[in-house]
Design a protein around this nucleic acid. Structure first.
Lengths: 216, 216
DNA sequence: GAGTAAATGTATACCAGGTGTAGAAATCAC
DNA sequence: GTGATTTCTACACCTGGTATACATTTACTC
């Protein structure tokens, strides 16, 4: 029953294999023809599995894509929890984001490998997938809020407010990078600007928006 | 063709009437039995219209509900654009939000009329409707970013970052209020706390998160 | 006021995502 | 092996949404 079972068993093994086969078939087909252009029946056929079985492994068509990104949902929360003692949450998060940029982590929007870009394009072209990504943000907010509350001794409301701000900003930064890469800018060329933007964004988070001038 | 036409015409009139009939039938049925428990065919029948006609007026089932909230998508942007000269965007938005609380605007989450609460419950119970609301947030962010950029002489990135933070915070405040009301707290009783929370949130937006202690 | 083009509504059939059911087949424990 | 349990499958079905082809209504022109 547990995730890591002492007795893998033939059953568990086949399950994992089937799951991987379905997921692989799905990604391959989706990348080739587009998410909306491929039916779940086609995916099931390609994976040599019945439609019903497919839905036993992935409750919705969208899950065939997004299950691979599930880990990222709690990433910010984990970073906050794992920060070294004496470090402010925002500092740890900024450091982590900058590391992501440096390593071209796809989540930072700064990875221009064709594979990654094709995945990105596939998601943007399918409204239902975009909606699921939005849902991810909500999950990330909740997890981060809890992490802040528990590890930074922050009141519930403040934790929630901080969490939604942070998640929104990180998301915006990543989207901005991805958008520029989609326009053809190479990642290495964008890197310096991405770092600058990230620094600016985290500074804004720390110091607030009072610089917004009243000028009209 | 224009929204306000000198010649309403019988055609236009009937169209509006049909549209209203469909929308009313939908809301009534959805509130009574739940969004997912009512099929569009039932709505069409209740409105004495064919299914195809229904979809000519509302492109998706969700639109039967959310078309009534479409105005709110650009509300924050309008507030920023309409602020008196010499006023900071955040000041205008805070003022507007507080006014919403005072007037128990449903968008502030502080309206406990049974109708409003039932609508709220209906939305929360239907994942596809929740997803649509998330989409609203995205639209609100975009509109607000543009308003900030155009009226506050803010760089594009800063405007976007500020916009996502502001929208996220307002949404969180409203959700928090709505949640408490859903738990039975009367709006009048919650009012003072809601104002306090809003003030706190906007202060946080203005002054930043540097108060988040590193304490572990 | 009659005739006609355009817009609107309808019936019907269809596609895709997703579920319920009952039973076949594989796996496991003994 | 045998029996119980899980997993898979085939099949039928429901619902949201679209395509087509046709009927009806409205509005404009003369």
């Amino acid at each position: 029953m547990g995730v890591v079972d002492g007795k893998p068993g033939l059953r568990e093994l086949k399950k994992q294999r089937t799951r991987a086969a379905i997921s692989d078939a799905a990604i391959t087909l989706f990348l080739e023809h587009g998410f909306n252009q491929v039916s779940v029946a086609q995916v099931a056929e390609a994976a040599e599995v019945s439609k019903r079985t497919l839905f036993a492994y992935f409750p919705t068509k969208e899950d065939l894509v997004v299950h691979r990104l599930a880990d990222h949902e709690t990433e910010a929360a984990r970073v906050v929890r794992a920060r070294p003692p004496g470090t402010a949450p925002l500092t740890a998060l900024r450091e982590h984001f900058l590391t992501g940029l440096r390593e071209r982590d796809p989540i930072s929007g700064l990875n221009d490998h064709p594979q990654v870009r094709r995945v990105h394009r596939m998601i943007l072209d399918a409204p239902s997938l975009v909606a699921r990504m939005e849902g991810f943000k909500t999950g990330a907010e909740r997890a981060l809020a809890q992490a802040l509350q528990e590890t930074a001794d922050t009141p519930e409301l403040t934790a929630r407010l901080a969490a939604v701000q942070i998640v929104a900003v990180q998301w915006a930064l990543a989207q901005d990078n991805a958008e520029r890469l989609a326009y053809g800018e190479p990642a290495d060329e964008r890197y310096a600007g991405a770092v600058e933007d990230a620094e600016h964004a985290f500074t804004l988070l720390e110091n607030g928006l009072h610089h917004l001038t009243p000028q009209r």
